[in-house]
Simulated assay, not measured.
Amino acid sequence: MNRLRKQLCAAVTASLTGQKGNPPETGRALWNAFQGLSATRTYHPAGPNPIQPSEVLAWCQLHRMPMEPRHVEILLAMDQAYLDHAYAAAKRPEGVKAMAPVSKTPLTAGLLDAMFG
């Protein structure tokens, strides 16, 4: 299982860097589960939130896919690889200040209405 975890985490990292994420055939069900769970991921102002074990449980029940604890550990390791990549760009040397990101989209009345109703 350790080898499968490494292969799937490498596939996640490869797919995030623009390469072809090619998971092993034995991990195809876990890859599909991770893609489904990641698509429903929530975000906070600093970036993506981790996938919670309760979300994995709900996903398994919804899709009627039994999953063993070792499979959940692999899914959470894949999620950690995703989060490591997502937060790598936000890391900066200690003591260096950074300005808040500025959107390239201008603020319009229509955009405000879309955001706040």
Rank of each mutant, 00 (worst) to 15 (best):
R5K: 13
R5S: 12
K6T: 12
C9S: 15
C9R: 14
T13G: 06
A14R: 15
T17P: 06
G18D: 10
K20A: 06
P23S: 13
P23C: 14
G27P: 06
W31V: 00
F34H: 07
F34Q: 05
G36Q: 05
S38G: 09
Y43G: 04
P45Q: 12
A46G: 07
G47K: 13
G47V: 07
P48Q: 06
N49K: 12
Q52E: 09
P53H: 09
S54M: 14
L57D: 11
A58N: 01
C60T: 06
R64A: 02
M65A: 03
M65H: 08
M65E: 04
P66K: 01
M67H: 00
M67L: 03
M67K: 03
M67E: 02
E73Y: 05
L75R: 12
L75M: 11
L75K: 12
L76G: 07
M78W: 14
M78F: 12
A81R: 12
Y82I: 01
A88Y: 14
A89S: 11
P93V: 10
E94Y: 14
G95P: 02
G95N: 02
K97N: 11
K97T: 14
M99W: 08
M99S: 10
M99Y: 05
P101I: 06
K104I: 00
P106Y: 03
L107W: 10
A109N: 05
G110L: 09
L111M: 14
L112N: 04
L112W: 04
M115V: 08
G117H: 10
G117D: 09
